[in-house]
Write a protein that binds this DNA or RNA. Structure first.
Lengths: 203, 203
DNA sequence: TGTACATCAGTGAACGCGCGTTCACTGATGTAC
DNA sequence: TGTACATCAGTGAACGCGCGTTCACTGATGTAC
């Protein structure tokens, strides 16, 4: 911890990072502005120089999270290379990797219940993350005959739901499972893809 | 609202029901003992005649939820009748129906982060609910050749994860989807079962 | 290079609030005789 | 049926606490000349 004078230097980002730790530790609802200020070695009132208030700080945490998330997903997807299938599976793995590596961001994004109406700056960046998975699903769909090709938005919703469920129940949660979350999601997606007709019926 | 004298008559259950509404409305973290007491037209101190405190009331809500949940799942499963497949699908539908009809219970069970250690009365009833889905998955597995039969506990974890994900993201959540949650889960489970080799590869 | 001054980013005290919990109490109910 | 009394389930006041937010302030920094 470095010394500092009257001025902090980079309080805004320091508050975001303090919030991240607190959120990961106590959930978005348990996070308080006062504790974040204390963690950044600053008076609660100082927070108001950089954020409109508690919710606004929370929203900034979520916004940065969506940014990282979208970037990771895009990197994993890699424009569908080497194959649509491999890219899709990599995207699924990236989802879980993000949740594990950035728990504070993840919780601010998906468990804080932030209104996208109240924080319009969140909408575009949230959509960007979503679009990656949908493109990945779309790439897959093209390998299916048109008559039994579910909409890409449905496929991506299925995968998103299973991924989120694995995170909440088996990674974060109290529910114990004999399988590591990563294996659980990988096998679940595998079976699902076989059901779509994209993997051979047996291994 | 009926008149009452000094004694309430059935305060314990009235508090549980007040808590249910508050939880559904503001999440388990937002629920307060004082508001529950006020909703039951009683002083906050009166709550302590029936519960050890706020968390204990929350735990009772969750316990009742697990009870209802397990009963609904068992009813839907119906000991695997008429077929293992139909019973499994009915169980999946029952999951979502429960989440929709009993949001307060659902949230107390899965979003409150109650420690099963601190409330040992929760463990057996939570396990009972879990066991139903696992029996349903086990019934399915028996129709698969032993060499490509994933463990029943894995299958049930996959389905639980997808169900929970659909509830959190698309039923409760801000995420909008063109598909109703019920359809989303049904189609997702359908594709998954096809992947297991339990449904014909095309429709 | 030195000085005056505007701007900025903090402080510290104060606010009103609702929270969970405790305590001594009291009104209502049920039971023994 | 009537009365004394124990038990029970509420009340009401009080507590200490931490919260988010506001306000007038002040110390530090940067800029103009």
């Amino acid at each position: 911890m470095t010394k500092r004078g009257y001025h902090h230097g980079n309080l805004r980002q320091a508050l975001v990072e303090a919030a991240l730790e607190l959120i990961a530790e106590k959930s978005p609802q348990g996070f308080t502005l006062s504790e974040a200020a204390k963690a950044a070695e600053v008076t609660p009132a100082a927070v108001y120089r950089h954020f409109a208030g508690r919710e606004d700080l929370l929203a900034e945490v979520a916004r940065q999270g969506y940014d990282i998330f979208a970037a990771l997903m895009e990197y994993a997807f890699d424009e569908g290379r080497p194959t649509a299938l491999a890219a899709f599976e990599a995207t699924g793995r990236a989802y879980l990797a993000f949740a594990r590596k950035y728990p504070g961001h993840y919780m601010a994004m998906f468990e804080a219940g932030l209104s996208l109406q109240a924080f319009p700056e969140l909408a575009p960046v949230a959509m960007r993350a979503r679009a990656v998975l949908e493109r990945a699903a779309d790439g897959l769909s093209r390998h299916l005959p048109a008559d039994r090709r579910p909409p890409a938005s449905m496929v991506s919703a299925h995968i998103w739901a299973m991924s989120h469920g694995v995170v909440e129940l088996y990674m974060r949660g109290a529910t114990k499972s004999p399988f590591p979350p990563e294996d659980l999601l990988e096998s679940g997606i595998g079976i699902y893809l076989r059901g779509l007709g994209l993997l051979p019926p047996d291994r």
